[in-house]
Amino acid sequence: MLRTPADGTRLRILAWLGEPGTAERGLTADDVAARLGVSRPAALTHLRLLDSLGLLRPAGDDGGPRYRRDEIRLAEVTRLFEKGW
């Protein structure tokens, strides 16, 4: 979890997923790749890592899963860091 890229890519993905519209719709790996200007495999790597940490919830399979934030898990992690973990 602490292996964050220097450019903050995963934080940007989480922030983007919190925006109105995107939060409801979710994002595919293709969406992330296009927005960030990275390859689809690179986008998938970021999404899968966030998913493995429990910060995202994938759903659906038509053209690949759409990822949404897991707001409960994000709140738990935020509280841990606020407590100085």
Rank of each mutant, 00 (worst) to 15 (best):
L80V: 11
A59L: 08
R10D: 13
M1Q: 09
T78C: 05
D51C: 11
R69Y: 01
R35Q: 07
L44E: 15
G64S: 11
W16E: 07
Y67G: 02
G84T: 02
G8P: 01
P41G: 12
L14T: 08
F81A: 13
R25Y: 02
A75G: 12
P65V: 06
D30W: 06
R73M: 04
A33V: 02
A43H: 05
F81H: 13
G26Q: 06
V38W: 01
R35G: 03
R73D: 00
T28L: 04
W85H: 10
R48Q: 15
L80R: 14
I72Q: 06
E71G: 09
R3T: 13
L53F: 15
L55A: 15
M1P: 10
W85C: 06
G84H: 01
E24F: 02
A6T: 11
G54I: 08
G60Y: 04
A59P: 00
A75E: 14
F81W: 13
R79S: 12
F81Y: 14
R3I: 08
D70T: 01
E82L: 14
L80C: 08
A59Q: 14
R35H: 07
E24R: 15
G26R: 04
L74R: 07
A43E: 04
A6E: 14
A59F: 06
L80P: 00
L80D: 11
R73K: 11
R69N: 01
L2G: 10
R66T: 08
G84F: 01
A23F: 01
V32G: 02
V38E: 04
I13F: 04
R40H: 11
P65A: 15
D31L: 05
P41W: 09
V32L: 07
D7M: 03
P65L: 00
P20T: 06
R3S: 12
T4K: 10
E82V: 04
L27M: 13
G8V: 02
A75V: 01
P41V: 10
L47I: 09
G8L: 10
P41Q: 10
D30I: 09
P20E: 12
D30A: 15
E82A: 14
A29M: 03
G60H: 06
L27G: 00
R66N: 04
R79P: 00
K83H: 06
R68D: 00
G63H: 10
D51M: 09
I13H: 03
G37Q: 04
W16F: 08
D30M: 05
L53Y: 15
L55S: 10
W85N: 05
A33T: 03
P5N: 13
V77H: 04
A29D: 10
A29H: 02
V38M: 13
R68T: 14
R40Q: 12
